[in-house]
Design a protein around this nucleic acid. Structure first.
Lengths: 340, 340
DNA sequence: CTGAAAGCGCTTACAG
DNA sequence: CTGAAAGCGCTTACAG
């Protein structure tokens, strides 16, 4: 089945040279004469030599494999990050192994261990929502460079690549204030979600800086920030005496659920109630009115994370604990502001 | 940085046994006494022994890595297939390396070669749209089991896991006929798209079997079947004298573009013109009216493809050339039929 | 400038 | 039931 592959040995026999010399010639070692190098490289090309990466990795204790762990590969934003990771890793000569944790802390630990067992050179990870215990993750970074992206955590001392969520949320709220909104509700996740908390901070800061009173009654926390919950929470917000004039949902899906409910009650968007989401998903341009949201450059997050990780892999001194923020930006659409 | 890991040698020293015995004990070899096995396994667990997969793979010429090549990881349907692949592979003890071809035939070949160089045990692939030359792919299957999924090709002699596209399209068209439609347009891709051609066949067969004349004027081919093209082609279809009373777009995005255009012209959907898509994307329930479409069970495609591939990897005699069809099913929504 | 030899961690045919 | 030894394909310190 397998073709007999060209090995160093074969090249050596063919050219009456030693395996060592062949190896050095192909690796462009300074000791080897130009003439020899050329000869060897020519033959290697002719016989279609490809190094056995496993032998190489085995020998050098380096695999050129990066392990990537995400909660759910089917989330559009996640998949754009993965795209950036694949692209950048491939450019740098690294292969990528992807696993899903399915937002299951136990599976997450299992997957981390399998990756270690696989001798990955480094790990990129977006942590699962239910991760309240980070001990297992801390064990991992004893062994191998780790960088968190998107769903990060300040409990883990490692570099992190994230969106400027606080600021992005701030900008979104400021935009609502600028168009005259004064009573802005938020639908967020519970306090275990790092991203949600950061967006919430931006919300609070914007209100404070613009001297808008904060009202707990229109600050809604849910466990699972889905389209369905968006619908339900919109219902809830409509039921209170003093209705909001804008709703910031910290995900697009929830925001879309909000819009659907508002439409059901024939509420004018954005005149009566404006709606803002977060992440610029595909759906955000399909819903009517189109959703104002924050675009998150997924590919850049991915490629940036890879760059930092490879830096740490190839230069262990560079292992750090910094947070790199990638700027998202507000995209204003009809759900907050109608042109014309 | 790296912790010194427990190796077979270390276990051997600790127990005054040979490396061979340790290896056999851990692999549950029948020759080894129960007593020894127990002793070894206990110590291995205690010292947290993990086999060096690279050494193992190197030795056995088997890596337990599956290479997966897809055009674009960010397509929702693709990501659901990947989810199924990851799940099933993980269950069977295989790791998955994913690469993107970005619908670029050259990159596709490059990626295949990198995978071979990586000694993957087998390859799963969804072929790029622009693949008109399959020679490079044929070279690959000389070396390693290959299974195509979703975007397949009858020019490649290997097993393929696909949706029953012809039949699904047939069902969609038959549904349109059942609700009284008589002039059904199709927006498809050009003849190089295998999937498009199969859906087109289903369209033709349904019309023929129901004695509906086929009219070239409402059979539209585009190079790139996108939302934008859906809009443009809907415009075109509206401009002809004898308008269609239904439009089958072979992707959801194109179908959504069609709906948007019809709405712009205040055409009643489905009364004046019904619309059907294909693939049950997230967007198909966000657009109004919600889109009738064909649900494709992505995870099952992925897990099935992995099962067949592992079968071929572990039992080379089983390498086949069969086509496994996974059934999609029609989801009827408001774009063709309004309940009440 | 080139080569012989050791070794990365494992499995397995051979021997006892 | 257990062990000694070879070997997977490569790199590299050592020697010349």
């Amino acid at each position: 089945m397998k073709k007999e592959t060209t090995s160093l040995k074969k090249l050596a026999q063919e050219l009456n040279l030693s395996v060592s010399t062949i190896s050095r010639a192909l690796n462009d070692h300074p000791d080897i004469s130009e003439a020899t190098k050329e000869k060897v490289q020519k033959l290697a090309a002719k016989l279609n030599y490809v190094p056995n990466i496993f032998a190489k990795g085995f020998r050098q204790q380096k695999t050129n494999i990066i392990g990537v762990l995400v909660p759910n590969i089917t989330h559009y934003f996640t998949s754009t990050i993965l795209k950036g990771i694949l692209e950048e890793a491939s450019l740098k000569g690294y292969r990528v192994i992807i696993s899903e944790s399915n937002n299951d802390a136990i599976k997450q630990t299992e997957m981390l261990n399998t990756m270690l067992q696989f001798n990955v050179d480094g790990i990129l990870m977006s942590i699962s929502k239910v991760t309240r215990e980070v001990d297992d993750i801390l064990k991992v970074i004893d062994n191998v460079p780790l960088i968190l992206f998107d769903k990060a955590s300040n409990k883990i001392p490692c570099s992190q690549v994230v969106i400027n969520e606080e600021e992005s949320a701030y900008n979104a709220i400021e935009h609502l204030i600028n168009i005259g909104k004064k009573r802005i509700a938020i639908i967020k996740e519970n306090e275990y979600s790092y991203n949600s908390e950061r967006r919430y901070s931006g919300y609070l800061r914007a209100l404070k800086e613009h001297n808008i009173p904060i009202d707990e009654k229109i600050i809604i926390s849910v466990d699972d920030i889905s389209l369905r919950q968006g619908r339900r929470m919109a219902n809830l917000l409509l039921s209170i005496k003093n209705k909001p004039d804008a709703i910031f949902a910290i995900t697009d899906s929830a925001a879309i659920g909000v819009i659907q409910t508002l439409k059901k009650f024939n509420i004018n968007i954005p005149e009566e109630i404006a709606v803002v989401g977060f992440s610029n998903s595909k759906n955000s341009t399909i819903i009517e009115p189109m959703l104002t949201t924050i675009d998150q450059p997924g590919e850049r997050i991915g490629s940036t994370a890879v760059k930092y990780l490879i830096e740490e892999i190839e230069n262990p001194d560079s292992i750090g604990n910094k947070t790199i923020e990638i700027k998202g930006h507000l995209i204003i659409r009809d759900s907050t502001f109608k042109a014309s």
